[in-house]
Amino acid sequence: MPLNIDIQQILLHMLNFVILFAVMYFVLYKPVKAFIDKRDACFREMEEKAKKDLDEAAAAKDEYEEKLRGAAEEIRTMKAEAQKDSREDADKIRSDAKKEAKEILNVAKLKAEHDTEVMIKNANSEICELAQQAAGKFVIENTSDAYDSFIESANDADED
């Protein structure tokens, strides 16, 4: 044949290559590829897991931030309520104090009035007593002088 083409040699080359292909495919290519695929799958799984963990962490962060925002709001509300309560308490205490002061004042006033009355009463009675005593004294003084003058007159009359 032209160019020294030989069918038998072509077939021998083919047979040689088929044997080589079978051995290389099953003994070398397939196991190495299986190993690479397995490792790729492992890395892919790790990557997915890492991504999932990252997503979870991001979600947890969001949740905590939301909670923090809620807590701040809650603190603000509680503070406002506490301020309101304390203001109310203070008002109440102030009004109670005023009320109590008023009551004390009234009581004091009443007591003062009563004491004044008592004192006036006592003073009146003392004045009466003093007047009586003065009147008594006056009467006694006046009656003794009259008696003395009577006696003297009587004595004078006797002598006469």
């Binding site: 030989d6 040699q9 080359h13 290559f17 044997i19 051995v23 003994v27 070398l28």
Partner: peptide, 28 residues
């Protein structure tokens, strides 16, 4: 009687097969 290239092909195939088998048994 064969062309020298076919002998080369057999030798190359032999070398590659031995390499593949050794790699499969000892390294993979």
């Amino acid at each position: 009687q064969v062309n020298p290239a076919l002998v080369s092909a057999w030798i190359v195939t032999g070398i590659l097969i031995v390499f593949a088998v050794i790699t499969r048994i000892f390294f993979i």
